[in-house]
Design a protein around this nucleic acid. Sequence first.
DNA 1: CCAAAAGTGTTCGAATTACACCCATGA
DNA 2: TCATGGGTGTAATTCGAACACTTTTGG
Lengths: 233, 233
Amino acid sequence: MEIYPKSSKHYVAVDCIIFGYDILDKELKLLLYKRTFDPARGSLSLAGGFVNAKESLDEAACRILTKLTGLESVYMKQSYAYGDTDRDPGDRVISVSYFALIPVRDINKDLARQNGVSWYALSGLPKLIFDHNDMVRRALSELQTQIRIKPVGFELLPEKFTLVQLQDLYEAIYRRKVDRRNFRKKILSMGILEKLEEKEKETSKKGAYYYKFNQDTYLKLKQNGFYFNLDVN
Amino acid sequence: MEIYPKSSKHYVAVDCIIFGYDILDKELKLLLYKRTFDPARGSLSLAGGFVNAKESLDEAACRILTKLTGLESVYMKQSYAYGDTDRDPGDRVISVSYFALIPVRDINKDLARQNGVSWYALSGLPKLIFDHNDMVRRALSELQTQIRIKPVGFELLPEKFTLVQLQDLYEAIYRRKVDRRNFRKKILSMGILEKLEEKEKETSKKGAYYYKFNQDTYLKLKQNGFYFNLDVN
DNA sequence: CCAAAAGTGTTCGAATTACACCCATGA
DNA sequence: TCATGGGTGTAATTCGAACACTTTTGG
């Protein structure tokens, strides 16, 4: 039964901009798919797929992400709908992009390899297919905005992290250095981090205390009018 | 010729959240369509329509806006893609929402009437069809964010406006009072307003100077690292 | 004992807030 | 002349920026 029989129907895809952060080389990465077949063999694309008749956009994005990484509960957010008629040279496809944040080490490596996806540093990213570079640019810009005003950076880190690691992450995303003392002062003054007894001892002799993000405290503060803000010099 | 024959195709619509500001009653309004036929006769909806095979999403949104208002160059921005499978009870329709900003007095009233659309105050908005209330909520929230950090408020005002009118607009969108002296100090210190010789004399005996927004100056400042910000107490 | 990374406070200037009185004019 | 809305300045406080030394410990 078709109620709107006069209108055109369209292919609708979702493309996932999967950001990963590697605490070791302190770089923001993207999980990309390398085509192993013609046409465009060897060229890179975002992880994407068509939206099925019986799933929502969000469901389609989650399905693709889970299929590639094995991860179920990941931070994911819709970014933008791309609808130029000629954006896909094959056929007219409207694509809704989503961006996801995951710690690089969390993904199921076998599953990723099996699916032909792997991590690529965001700096020096090559040309991706179609308008995927635009999608990345927009999503990165959104991430840079979000991470200032929402506690989403923690999604890119392991549950336990040091303040140095957190700062490295912000520097990687802001693409500039920030003052260590001011950064610590500001993030600690929010009262949303919980200091653990345990220390991380791999990267220094002295060792750095682990912290973890306290979501409950954050939500309570937010209800009382608190706004996360991590603008630092 | 179909390259992706195994995938589902979908109806794709655009819905326009058309914000208008009325300098007389100082209220933010929405241009809504009232159904004059069954089913759901008398219920309100956003201005929307299906995306044609040969037009982009942006083009579809502009087409709808122009058809209803007669306006060609209007501030319009994509908001969000709504894709729940049952959001439209008639059939599965994916809808991309756009929000537009126009001064209430600018629209072609005859055209609007002819098309069955008219202005409704945003406060006390009734239930709209489908998920259109969600669309409005999200767009309003984006507008409240945007108007703080980008000079988009001027899109809702006539070319010439007084500082009182500008402040009234901000108060209507922020939904709170702001201090007159601080507001003026801040907006004038940006140096993006041009004071005219002419005065507006309808609402007061003394009269208030007209100003206009200088887009060129703004763009130059922006290139030099200036960020518009109108957070005021 | 020393290299390497973690951790810590204070000062200064800028920006934000709070706040109240005079001005111009038409009726 | 007076009622109405337009226009203006200053002091107090808060917030962000700049900046350098001490601590810990494994090798």
